[in-house]
């Protein structure tokens, strides 16, 4: 079964440690607990999976800190990357 790592207890995303297929169950290991979650999309090794449903503009937390905000509402189990996560800091313009 594919695995994912929730790096900090505050995080609302985890990093998948295997390539994950849509519909596959993922075991998410965290410091405090291990949970199971169904991936709703294909997610490549090293990429992020939403652990809870996120509203548009809600902070995305990884390493215990805000790394950016959701562009749109993101259901739990979805892939999070450039298409649905933005960060004011470090934009090219």
């Amino acid at each position: 079964m594919p695995r994912a790592l929730k790096i900090n207890p505050r995080d609302n995303v985890a990093v998948v440690l295997n390539d994950v297929q849509s519909g596959e169950e993922v075991v998410v290991n965290g410091e405090e607990e291990t949970i199971r979650l169904t991936a709703r999309e294909e997610i490549a090794f090293g990429h992020k999976i939403a652990l809870i449903p996120l509203e548009a503009d809600q902070p995305v937390i990884k390493y215990g800190e805000e790394i950016g905000r959701a562009r749109v509402a993101i259901p739990a189990g979805n892939w999070i990357h450039l298409h649905n996560l933005y960060c004011q800091r470090g934009r090219g313009d």
Binding site: G46, E65, E66, I67, G68, I80, H81
Partner: peptide, 10 residues
């Protein structure tokens, strides 16, 4: 899988 500069820095 790195999306933002904050994430990379962290």
């Amino acid at each position: 899988g790195v999306t933002t500069v904050v994430e990379k820095a962290l």
